[in-house]
C-alpha cells in the first residue's frame, strides 16, 4: 500500500513529497534511538514526537512516512524541513493504539 492511499482512510496529509512510497509494515515509538535501532526501512512510523529530530530520524532510518497520532501538530518550520528532506508526514486523530489497528486493517 502506498503512503498516499492512507489519505482517504482516516489519515490527514501534513507533508506528502513522496506519496508513492510503499509501506511494508509499522513501527511505533517515541524514543528516537530506539526507533533507529528497531524500525525497518519502509515502515510507517507512528509517534507523538514532533520536534526537528523526528525528521532527521525518518530520513536516516528511511521510513516510508511519519504518522503523528493523537492529533499532534507539526510546527511550520519543521513542516518546511520535512518538505525539503522529502519526508512524508501524516496525522491521525486517533490514539496510538487505534491508529496502529487502523493501519493493520488497511495493510495487505
Amino acid at each position: 500500500m502506498k503512503v498516499s492511499d492512507l489519505l482517504n482512510n482516516g489519515f490527514e496529509e501534513i507533508t506528502l513529497p513522496d506519496g508513492d512510497r510503499e509501506i511494508n509494515g509499522v513501527y511505533i515509538g517515541d524514543l528516537l534511538s530506539w526507533v533507529m535501532g528497531r524500525a525497518q526501512q519502509d515502515n510507517a512510523w507512528i509517534t507523538i514526537m514532533s520536534n526537528i529530530n523526528v525528521i532527521a530520524v525518518a530520513t536516516l532510518a528511511d521510513t516510508a512516512c511519519v504518522i503523528l497520532a493523537e492529533n499532534v501538530e507539526l510546527p511550520d518550520d519543521i513542516k518546511a524541513q520535512a518538505e525539503i528532506k522529502d519526508v512524508n508526514v501524516l496525522k491521525s486523530s486517533l490514539p496510538i493504539y487505534e491508529t496502529a489497528v487502523r493501519l493493520h486493517e488497511l495493510l495487505p
Binding site: 517515541d30 524514543l31 528516537l32 534511538s33 530506539w34 533507529m36 535501532g37 514526537m49 520536534n51 529530530n53 523526528v54
Partner: peptide, 15 residues
C-alpha cells in the same frame, strides 16, 4: 524530552 537519552546510542552504533 527531545526523544534522546534512551541509552541506545552506542549500542546502535555497534549494531
Amino acid at each position: 524530552s527531545l526523544g534522546f537519552g534512551a541509552g541506545m546510542g552506542l549500542p546502535n552504533m555497534k549494531r
